[in-house]
Structure formats: structure tokens, C-alpha cells
Design a protein around this nucleic acid. Structure first.
Lengths: 193, 193
DNA sequence: TTCATTTCTTAACTTAAGTGAACGAATTTA
DNA sequence: TAAATTCGTTCACTTAAGTTAAGAAATGAA
């Protein structure tokens, strides 16, 4: 399981045995059950999550309603906060499936960055990559209708549609569960013609 | 005008005179007329823009229709690509107003980063910041209706509503110009009651 | 297994956005 | 300055999403 993390990191920087051991000594790995809430709204410290296996979900509760805005699956990480940040969380993070992930708190990041500056460099590059990727996602979202968004998702992340409850998918697409049902029925109807 | 850039940078790293001169010698500053197209779809090299004064706009042309996805005004920068990237642009960038900005091509970035590693560090931190900010913007967009988005914009970037043409604002909000007109009329109607 | 809860779908109705067209106002350009 | 174009608004109509409600299916807990 550790290898997945090291393989991922090796795409950005090469690690010596010392550095690998420093990472392992931080005791980052966690195995969490489906439904576990990793982070609650209002909670102070912000953690970094990197999913090795499974799926986690980011959601807000607005007017008593869950609004899912992101899913993270294998080899995806949430917000690499290398720089310490003490804001309270506006959102929740929970496990969609039984999940194995790494959890890093800001102190670990600071410690690692001080000892091994290359980690901070990696964080920077990673942030750049994620930023570029997210800008594309945001632009796609803005320029598409819910139906197009759904069809895009079907192309780009077909696994999500299988492994994630429909009502969570719906708010991820910016609509209500009923609208997603209807939209799917509509697409099916069209494809019959 | 140079001071605006240096003031901005000083929030992240402190520059020696040598470093300032290296920056100035790159001849980054440009003064461009309203309507000028800075980047076209399909164009190969990706530039970094940092707005000192004025406003630039990012838009796609989809089915012959302009879809505006972002505006950048004073002290805002577009996508700090410190790492070279050779993709063709999917979008256009043009000036909403007469604008003064810095334009950096990837070669300049590479040169600067090699000479002064602290620039790359700054890019990393900047990316992290922008990533965090953009995640919030994306989440807000996903979890809001067009009307709420408009009201939020009125709160958070009231200047934009004044300085940007309505039809560009509309697609920035994810709707058609007619819908924006109607939505504004609706809000006005409500406030009368 | 059974009961309770949550989830998904369908339906009828309401509300708001998309579309096409028209017209005056503002802006460009010749 | 005059003509042409672009822009913003309004309107009527269409389409799709929100809402409320109901019932079936799946899931989880006792």
C-alpha cells in the first residue's frame, strides 16, 4: 500500500531511503470505514487527504441540505496545504466507500518541508497541476448544461456513476436528485429514437 | 507602475536589487488597448498575465458563441505556469478595458526559476493560494442558483458589474444575457415589495 | 428475517432559464 | 455626422429544473 504513495511521489521528485523513512515515520496511513466523517464543518485544523483506495467526498450543508461538490478516488489528493492555514472548515469530508488514505496535518507538512525542501517544491508543482486541471473543470461546468455535464462525466469518470449514490452525484452536477432521474430518462428516450 | 508588481511580489518573497533588475530586464510590461486579443484558441505558447491596471477576460467560443469564464482585474494573475507547458490554448484572452499588464512566456519563467529558485517557490505558494480560492469559487458556483450567484457577485466584486458588458457577465454567471436582464428585473421587483 | 430508514424514480405542478424576435440605445466605423 | 453594428431589454413561447408528494426498491439495524 505504501508503494502507491511512493509511486505517486516519484512522478514529481525522487526520494532517498531516508526521506521515505521520514515519511513513513509520520504514520500517515489510515483505513476508514464507509460513512466515516473525516472532517466536520467548523472544525479547526485542515488536513490533507490522499486516497490510496476507495472514495471520499466533500460536501456542504446549506439550509439543512447536503451539497456535494467533489469526489476523490484512487491517486487523487485533496488540497495540498503545504502552508499552514488555520481557518475553520466550511465543509464536511466523508467516506463513500471503505477507504485507505493518508492523512497529513499542517504540522507534518511544516516539519517535512523544513527537513526536506523538495517536498515543498513538489507541493508547489502539484498545486500548479491541480490548479490548471481545476480551471478546466470549472470552465467546463460553467459552459455546460446539466445534461452535457452528465454526459461528460459518463465519458471522463464512468466509475463515479457506478460507485456513488445518485443523490450525491446530482448535487455534484449542480441539480436535484429528481432532475437527475428525469435527465437520465430523457437521454434514454432520445437514444431509442 | 513597476512598484505595483514589486509590492505584489513582496507579499510572498523579498527581492534584492539584483533580482528586481533581472525581472525588469525581461521587459515584461505591456500596455494594451481595449479589445486587443492577447491569446487565441489554438495558439501554442501559454503566457502568464498579471494585471496591473485594467481588466482582461478569458472566454471560449463554443458553437460560435462566446462563453466567458473569468475576469482578471488589478493585482490578479492568470495561471502561474512556472512549469513549461506546450499545450494549445482552448480559450481566448482579450482586454475588456485599456490595460497595463505583465506578460511572461514560459522561457522567461524557466530562466528566472533557474537563476532565482525563490521565484519558483513563490509560484508554488501562489498556486496553492489560487487553488484554495478557486475551489471556494467553484463550490459556491455549484451550490448556488444564477440569482444567488448574481447577488454574491454584487457583494464580492461590485466593480465587475459596472465595468464589464452585461452579455459577458451573463455567461460568466452561467446564463444567457436575456436571463440576466430578467433576473435583475425580478430582483428589483422583489426589493420594491 | 423483519422493520425502519434511506434512496431512487415517477408524476403533476410551479418557477426560471433558453429561444427567437423586436426595438431603442449605445457604440463603432466609414 | 450618418450609417451600421453591437448591446441591453422586453415579450411570448418552449424547455428544463425545482418542488411536493407518493410509492417501490435497496439498505441497514434490531
Amino acid at each position: 500500500m505504501h508503494d502507491i504513495l511512493f509511486d505517486f511521489i516519484s512522478k514529481y521528485i525522487s526520494l532517498t531511503e531516508d526521506e521515505k523513512n521520514a515519511l513513513l515515520s509520520l504514520d500517515l496511513f489510515r483505513s476508514v470505514k464507509k460513512g466515516t466523517i473525516l472532517l466536520k464543518e467548523g472544525q479547526k485544523s485542515q488536513y490533507d487527504y490522499f486516497v490510496l483506495k476507495g472514495c471520499i467526498r466533500k460536501y456542504y450543508i446549506i439550509d439543512g441540505e447536503e451539497k456535494t461538490t467533489a469526489f476523490f478516488t484512487e491517486m487523487e489528493g485533496m488540497t495540498p496545504h503545504c502552508v499552514k492555514n488555520n481557518n475553520k472548515s466550511e465543509y464536511f469530508v466523508s467516506c463513500v466507500e471503505d477507504t485507505i488514505l493518508t492523512v497529513a496535518n499542517p504540522d507534518m507538512g511544516v516539519e517535512l518541508n523544513t527537513k526536506f525542501p523538495k517536498f515543498q517544491l513538489m507541493c508547489g508543482v502539484l498545486s500548479e497541476e491541480l490548479l490548471a486541471k481545476q480551471q478546466i473543470d470549472f470552465d467546463d461546468f460553467k459552459t455546460s448544461s446539466p445534461e452535457i455535464r452528465y454526459l461528460n462525466l459518463l465519458q471522463l469518470r464512468p466509475d463515479l456513476i457506478q460507485r456513488v449514490p445518485q443523490h450525491q452525484l446530482a448535487s455534484f452536477l449542480g441539480i436535484k436528485p429528481q432532475s437527475l432521474s428525469r435527465l437520465r430518462a430523457r437521454i434514454l428516450e432520445k437514444s431509442k429514437e
